[in-house]
Design a protein around this nucleic acid. Sequence first.
RNA 1: GGCCUCAUAGUUCAAUGGAUAGAACGAAAGUUUCCUAAACUUUAGAUAUAGGUUCGAUUCCUAUUGAGGCCA
Length: 590
Amino acid sequence: MNDLKYTLAQTLLHLLNKRLNINIKQIDLQPTRKDFEGDLTFTVFPLVKITGKNPEILGRELGEMLMESAPDLVEKFNVIKGFLNICLKKELYLKKLTEHYRSGQWITPVSDAGAIMVEYSSPNTNKPLHLGHIRNCLLGWSVSKLYEAIGHKVYRVQIINDRGIHICKSMVAWKKFANGATPQFKGVKGDHFVGDYYVLFEKEYKRQVQQLMARGVKEEDAKENAPIMLEAREMLRLWEQGDPDTMALWKQMNEWVYEGFDQTYQKLGVSFDKNYYESDTYRLGKDVILKGLHEGIFFQKEDGSIWVDLTSEGLDQKLLLRRDGTSVYITQDIGTAIARFEEFPIHKLIYTVANEQDYHFKVLFLILKKLGFPWADQLYHLSYGMVELPHGRMKSREGTVVDADDLIDEMIKTSADLTSSLGKAEGLSDEEKLELYHIIGLGALKYFILKVDPKKKMIFNPEESIDFNGHTGPFIQYTHARINSLLQKASTPDLKALPKELYAEESQLLKTLLDYNDTVHRAAAEYNPSELANYLFELARNYNAMYQKYSILTAESHEKKQLRILLSHCTKQVLYDGLHLLGISAPGRM
RNA sequence: GGCCUCAUAGUUCAAUGGAUAGAACGAAAGUUUCCUAAACUUUAGAUAUAGGUUCGAUUCCUAUUGAGGCCA
């Protein structure tokens, strides 16, 4: 559609310019609504004011002019109210489609494709991953794939928050309560193992606080001085001093966590080119702040703390270095960003982080811009809405956090039950069965998450299982699988024997296929995989409509058969390719 | 308190300022001697409220109500 639409827009612009003396820069062409005849629609209302002409008459004039000056492109037209509906020559569509089919190339790469870094996941090491991380990972992964698809080199990274009071809490609890237990010994996944001690810490902490309060200590003081909290603080102090025993324990616990994370990432099908660790990066940024202070970009308060003033940008003043010279969060983020651009040949950096940090990234980007880094305009916060439960946010204190591993396992189990009860796995080896269940279960989960606009919050109801019918991943996977098995019974299409006339369902499918390139580019440009997800559903539906209504292998004519086989091949290619850009596999049968 | 999001069928999601607001699930009814029924076809059902801008508003602006978030 891309090229044809562009050509038509150019022709129309030229006509308006030369024949009607109207100078506008952009032509607004939209796909014609299904209820009307046509492929593309030009809305003439905006021109009515300029020309003073009746919209219907103007539309007809333009239509006539198009027919006259671009007879190879335009088949016919009609005007309804102020809408000029244009039918393009079907041969052109078919020609485009055959080109794609022959080359297997569906996406035109961008000409100025530089390298990009995408950061996603970025967990803390005191707890296992949850549903929020799943959304984060799937978005980061899919956006990475989208950029690769249009020709960019992409570096995938995560920054792991492996230091601080939270991990010290797990360490203290392990020391006190574990008796030297290990994940292997207990048969628990490493990240869950460490997470369990974090929960134990919180439980004991709460108990101690209540005990103190019962003895008449004020709540504030009790929280401050509960013995186990003091131990955690002491642990953090020892860590910062590099105490050998503390470091050893810290390393050991993080190792356990990473083993667990790796398993989850693998099940989810995401990976990273590089891991950053806050224990390495938390000192970064200080020197840049001091340099900025020197250059008058920042200012120092009387107590010695360093700040940036963003009030002229409509934001606040923001602390950068405390008076004792220690960093705050944003300091290390500044340093890390600089380090990344030095280390990698990237021209763009995308942070996949939930929208609760919108303000943080606004400030971060502004500061880097003030510091004069030329790439500061190429920083993007892929801000996504949080996953909520029907009654609100997931809360660890209330135990409502949806665990990533549990959810994945549940999806696979549901997939297995459903697949075997439908008899779809008959004749497969046990290994093949497991793989198929995994692909379908994760297809359902991933599509469920990616079909939603990232900017919007989404609701997940643990009481209702994620669907496998309707607007779902398995629906698209199924359409692909069915085409695959059909094509095994078909010969390669004879591209010289395509029909001149298309039925509505064939034509609709054809047009949708030609929208693939645009869709992928738009999804990448807008950092929005849901554009692609919804497109693929539409494509699968269009295919099923044709499949249902017309026979393919026993079509009414040789020409129709070739056309439908060609359409089937193309649909299969696009579904397979598009699903992979969402991180979803497409099985050959199901 | 200051700032930032969001509000669409019973539910979960769509709709570059354009035509009669699309889907899916759920509900009701149908399609199998025929390429995989995880499919297809019908029916019922929605733009929070009040203004404004516009030839035209779910979309832009203002206020109200409600939900969420961030900053102390």
